[in-house]
Design a protein around this nucleic acid. Structure first.
Lengths: 337, 337
DNA sequence: CTGAAAGCGCTTACAG
DNA sequence: CTGAAAGCGCTTACAG
């Protein structure tokens, strides 16, 4: 590099204008201690010179880095893109950058990740714990996004209400025999979703919960969930706690010759990238991630400004049902329209 | 917060030991200008005191932030988790943090994202352009990950060779009628993959390319690719340039009553999260992302240390075929085992 | 409304 | 091997 004319600094542009660095600083930060005309002249020159304030100097002086950390137990989770995008957008709107830290799926490394972030000087951390991991309170503002059932939660989707929407939808379609599929009985999120579903099932409707093993991905294929048997014994609605599970159900059922949605309905959660692309397209429930991210970031920013701990509000952000083609009236049920 | 006993700084621990800040700095940075015993004592005290060097001060002094930026045209791409994880790991191994920037799928915002990163003082940027976007040369080291066919490329997977593996596999299985499916005729990556496949198709094998529209996701379902018709006209191998497309093909075909892999084979690329979970599990080709990330980050770090522009090597990192259950011998072909 | 001064916490030549 | 000094580029009381 070593280009001719490096980026100028505050003093340089102050000198070129014959004013003090303090005045330039004030003019540029718009704190209004400078006359309008001088401020304008300063801004013009700064722009023309391509002035970029040094974040390092500012951080050193103010004690604030302007950077937020984002920690997830597993960056490779398929929901990560949506989350990262929402957080990044909310953060950059609030004037913050986002530093990522991965704990590679290992909960033990979560604490390491948090420490690395703190060492880098982040002003606050958005954390999405996979399980009900106890978040150790480092002396750093944190906003945790999980389920309202998780203590210390700052904001979350209302998974319970999301579950209710699934149930209402499926019940109104005429389904009377449900299989609820999850893969982690310890997850508050999954339990909320399942609890929400059950809470809206009228008397006379059967619903069993199937907790499936997490297949270890890598090269091996996932094992069969034995769903065809369930169909044989009368289940017509498969409500899964995630789209990944729903996709697994869909393909397994299709492979077994069961027709979806003519014979059974399938629903998921999260509206992952593939959900609209499969045939039939997956009926699912999506979180309002932009709003959740905004809430989390706002809480964090406020805590940073006040130098306090973020409020622990269990506000549940409503979820939205996305009705697509995997859910329809069960066989023998008169179409409603 | 305002906890009692804030984190100590260099001077404080120097004072507590009766040595100079310079000595503490030297001892801690291990540059060896300090006697072993003094160095040990200093390290012990620093550890005990929980000393954390101020990144801001260090950055201001050295002119290096120790942070790398990661730019993708669309953070919500399903491959993002794998990429982010690989980059984050490579970067943190090299002692760098990773700041993300999203251009929300809009190529025009890519430049904005890069600028935001530079304003934040990143030392270098890893960029993955979606199309053959011309990357403007900011005065900042950049490593671009794309296809070897892209000018300015620093490192990439050998998509062509990946395509060849797909072709070899499918041909050895006995397939003679291919449909190659892509969704972006302008993408170097897709063209390389398809080119690689074609390059290994023996005479007498038919292969047509189908460029499908990118369905706009959101709520609408993807439209039919009309794949059943292709089966009727004799196609037995569907080679897709991505797993998303392969999944679309798989479900569409299953839905149409075509049996996979008994009647047709399907292959994808990238080994996305769902690929091992579907039934039958998807045969796919995966990139060696850890290695690609390491190469990109190393090139960047070297460029940063030398204050130079990263080498433009078009090294293609080999891809790996992951054979799963969507590919098998076509009907009428004798099983090889 | 504007300026002079101090200082955030490091690191790096430069002396000794 | 160790220390004194300067300085990275800002911002923020404090004077004027």
């Amino acid at each position: 590099m070593s280009a001719g004319r490096a980026t100028p600094n505050l003093s340089r542009i102050a000198a070129s204008l014959g004013v003090s660095p303090a005045t330039v600083s004030n003019a540029l930060s718009g704190k209004g201690r400078v006359s309008a005309e001088v401020a304008n002249r300063i801004r013009a020159v700064a722009d023309a010179a391509g002035y970029m304030p040094s974040q390092a100097a500012r951080a050193l002086r103010t004690g604030r880095s302007g950077v937020l950390g984002l920690v997830l137990p597993d960056i490779s989770h398929p929901l990560f893109p949506q989350i990262a995008q929402a957080i990044e957008h909310a953060a950059s709107t609030a004037g913050y950058g986002v530093l990522i830290a991965d704990s590679r799926g290992d909960t033990a490394l979560q604490t390491d990740a948090i420490y690395r972030l703190i060492e880098r000087g982040v002003d606050g951390i958005v954390i999405i714990p996979r399980l009900g991991t106890r978040i150790v309170d480092i002396g750093c503002p944190m906003a945790v996004i999980d389920s309202p059932s998780t203590p210390g939660n700052t904001v979350s989707a209302d998974h319970w209400q999301g579950g209710q929407q699934v149930a209402d939808h499926l019940v109104s379609l005429g389904h009377r025999a449900f299989l609820l599929i999850g893969n982690n009985p310890l997850s508050n999120v999954q339990n909320d979703r399942i609890g929400g579903i059950r809470s809206r099932l009228p008397a006379g409707v059967s619903a069993e919960v199937l907790w499936v093993e997490k297949h270890d991905a890598e090269h091996g294929a996932a094992s069969s969930l034995g769903l065809a048997t369930r169909v044989a014994s009368g289940v017509t609605a498969f409500a899964c706690v995630s789209d990944l599970l729903a996709l697994r159900a869909l393909t397994e059922l299709q492979r077994a010759g069961v027709r979806v949605p003519e014979e059974v309905s399938i629903t998921g959660f999260d509206d992952l990238a593939f959900s609209a692309a499969v045939t039939p397209a997956l009926t699912t429930v999506r979180m309002d991630l932009p709003r959740i991210a905004r809430t989390a970031v706002d809480a964090l920013v406020q805590a940073i400004d006040l130098d306090a701990v973020p409020a622990t509000g269990s506000s549940g952000v409503p979820m939205h049902l996305v009705i697509r083609q995997t859910s329809a009236h069960p066989p023998g049920h008169p179409a409603a329209d």
